[in-house]
């Protein structure tokens, strides 16, 4: 086992760095620049049962230390993903990939997850119960412990692959939601999705985003993410994947010390397409600086007595 190796639900990752869903497409754009097989894995674009255009534009706004997005789960639908995207992906990516799934009803989630569960290249099912940019679904499942339980439990009953519940930070008590997902059968918890925000265009005197609100991501949310990963890791016994504003190798180490066994990197990919590659390459040097011989040794160390 290498210094960077970690394990996620029985699958070994060469390193803990995972591009987050919605910031990496299906990997092709990044594969033009570097060999994406150097990643731990990646979480592909959020998939729903039916194709979705998403929200009207503008969908993106600049913020201090980050950005707002209200893409609204644009994707070609699960059947197209299975028939078109996964076979193409197989040509360039030779590790198990994380399938990110969203829905508007429990049945939606179950059906989409069940179809992706049959795909050989899918290693994990990441159930997004936290998208803030869709109406009548998404985040509403992840802000109520009972609804979160119902979705995760129903998906668990109909799938075999490791199940990751992706949680929203837009809640008062993250530990309660996380425990609910664990009880429902989640094999891991990933967090945080974006924080609900808004910007207003001073000239137009209206919200910049056509959707009015959007999800905040980028370095601005990093401290919130570290706090919630810490609280979640203390509350559950399943592994936690930390994300939210990670930009550097130091951020990865901080997130792992908070309790994450692996990390997802999101917004950083959009401003620096080499972000994940750079982080992975810099990890050994930064580990040396902090006398860390193996990343496995530091998981959750900040919260230990």
């Amino acid at each position: 086992m290498g210094r960077l190796t970690t394990e996620l639900c029985g699958i070994t990752l060469d390193n803990p760095v995972i591009p987050a869903s919605g910031t990496f497409g299906y990997g092709y754009e990044f594969a033009e620049l570097y060999d994406i097989n150097l990643l731990g894995t990646f979480s592909f674009k959020g998939t729903t049962l039916n194709p979705r255009f998403g929200n009207p534009t503008p969908r993106i706004a600049e913020c201090p230390g980050g950005m707002l997005n209200a893409v609204g789960l644009q994707n070609p639908g699960v059947d197209n993903v299975i028939q078109e995207e996964l076979p193409k992906l197989k040509q360039i990516f030779h590790k198990p990939v994380m399938a990110n799934i969203s829905g508007f009803s429990v049945d939606d989630y179950v059906e989409t997850a069940a179809r992706l569960d049959r795909e050989e290249q899918v290693g994990w099912l990441e159930i997004n119960i936290s998208c803030p940019n869709v109406h009548g679904g998404g985040m509403s499942f992840g802000t109520d412990p009972q609804q979160a339980y119902e979705v995760i439990h129903a998906v668990r009953m109909n799938t075999h692959k490791p199940l990751i519940a992706k949680l929203s930070p837009n809640v008062t008590d993250i530990a309660m939601i996380a425990r609910s997902c664990e009880r429902a059968g989640a094999d891991a918890i990933s967090l945080i999705n974006t924080i609900l925000g808004m910007r207003i265009d001073l000239n137009r005197r209206k919200p910049i985003l056509a959707n009015q609100t959007g999800g905040l991501s980028g370095p601005a949310v990093f401290p919130v993410a570290v706090r919630m990963v810490y609280q979640t890791a203390k509350a559950v016994s399943v592994p936690v994947i930390g994300m939210g504003g990670i930009t550097t190798a130091e951020d990865v180490i901080e997130m792992m010390m908070a309790g994450a066994v692996a990390v997802e990197v999101g917004a950083a990919n959009l401003t620096d397409p080499y972000a994940c590659k750079t982080i992975i390459e810099q990890l050994p040097e930064v580990m040396d600086r902090y006398q860390i011989s193996s990343l496995r040794d530091i998981v959750g160390i900040a919260g230990k007595e």
């Binding site: 534009t57 969908r59 997005n69 893409v71 644009q74 397409p273």
Partner: peptide
């Protein structure tokens, strides 16, 4: 023209029908 996140196809921020 459209407001963009990444500018290289990753984020779906600038989609048009």
């Amino acid at each position: 023209e459209e407001r963009m996140g990444c500018g290289f196809g990753a984020c779906m921020g600038c989609s048009v029908s």
